[in-house]
Amino acid sequence: MIVGLTGGIGSGKTTVLNFFKAFQNISVYIADEEAKNLMNSSPLLKSQLINAFGKELFVDNTLQRAYLSNLVFKDPKKLQILNEIVHPQVAKHFSEFVALNAHKAYILYENAILFETQNNQFCDCILTVSAPLEDRISRIIHRDQTTRRAVLDRMQHQFPEEKKRLQSNYLIQNTSLPALKEEVYRIHNILTL
Results as ranks from 00 to 15, higher is better:
Met1His: 04
Met1Tyr: 00
Met1Val: 12
Met1Leu: 13
Ile2Pro: 03
Ile2Asp: 11
Gly4Val: 01
Gly4Trp: 00
Leu5Asp: 08
Gly10Ile: 08
Ser11Asn: 10
Lys13Trp: 05
Lys13Phe: 03
Leu17Tyr: 02
Phe19Asp: 04
Gln24Asp: 14
Gln24Lys: 13
Asn25Tyr: 02
Ile26Asn: 06
Tyr29Ser: 06
Tyr29Ala: 04
Ile30Gln: 14
Ala31Asn: 12
Asp32Ala: 06
Glu34Phe: 03
Ala35Ser: 15
Asn37Trp: 08
Ser41Leu: 13
Pro43Lys: 13
Leu45Gln: 04
Ser47Arg: 08
Ser47Thr: 13
Leu49Met: 06
Ile50Gly: 07
Ile50Trp: 09
Asn51Ala: 07
Asn51His: 13
Gly54Asn: 05
Gly54Cys: 10
Glu56Gly: 10
Glu56Pro: 07
Leu57Pro: 00
Leu57Val: 13
Phe58Ile: 08
Val59Tyr: 11
Asn61Val: 03
Asn61Arg: 03
Thr62His: 13
Thr62Gly: 01
Leu63His: 01
Gln64Gly: 01
Arg65Asn: 05
Ala66Glu: 10
Tyr67Phe: 07
Tyr67Met: 04
Leu68Asn: 01
Ser69Cys: 07
Leu71Asn: 01
Leu71Tyr: 03
Val72Thr: 02
Phe73Thr: 01
Lys74Thr: 15
Lys74Met: 04
Leu82Trp: 08
Ile85Arg: 07
His87Met: 06
Pro88Val: 03
Lys92Glu: 14
Lys92Trp: 09
His93Phe: 09
Phe97Cys: 11
Val98Phe: 00
Val98Ala: 12
Leu100Ala: 15
Ala102Glu: 15
Lys104Asn: 15
Tyr106Thr: 07
Leu108Phe: 12
Tyr109Cys: 03
Glu110Pro: 00
Glu110Phe: 00
Ala112Thr: 11
Leu114Met: 06
Glu116Asn: 10
Thr117Lys: 08
Thr117Val: 12
Asn119Pro: 06
Gln121His: 03
Leu127Tyr: 01
Leu127Gln: 08
Thr128Gln: 09
Thr128Ile: 10
Val129Cys: 10
Ser130Leu: 13
Pro132Leu: 04
Asp135Ser: 05
Arg136Pro: 04
Ser138Ala: 13
Ile141Val: 13
Arg143Ile: 06
Thr146Asp: 01
Arg148His: 12
Val151Gln: 08
Val151Ile: 10
Val151Tyr: 05
Leu152Thr: 05
Leu152Trp: 05
Asp153Val: 00
Arg154Gln: 14
Arg154Asp: 13
Met155Val: 07
Gln156Val: 08
Gln156Glu: 11
His157Asp: 02
Pro160Phe: 00
Glu161Gln: 14
Glu161Val: 11
Glu162Pro: 13
Lys163Trp: 01
Lys164Val: 12
Arg165Gly: 15
Gln167Ile: 05
Ser168Glu: 04
Leu171Lys: 04
Leu171Val: 15
Ile172Val: 15
Asn174Gln: 11
Thr175His: 09
Ser176Gln: 08
Leu177Asn: 14
Leu177Cys: 11
Pro178Ser: 05
Pro178Phe: 00
Lys181Ser: 15
Glu182Phe: 09
Arg186Phe: 14
Asn189Ala: 07
Ile190His: 08
Leu191Ile: 09
Thr192Leu: 05
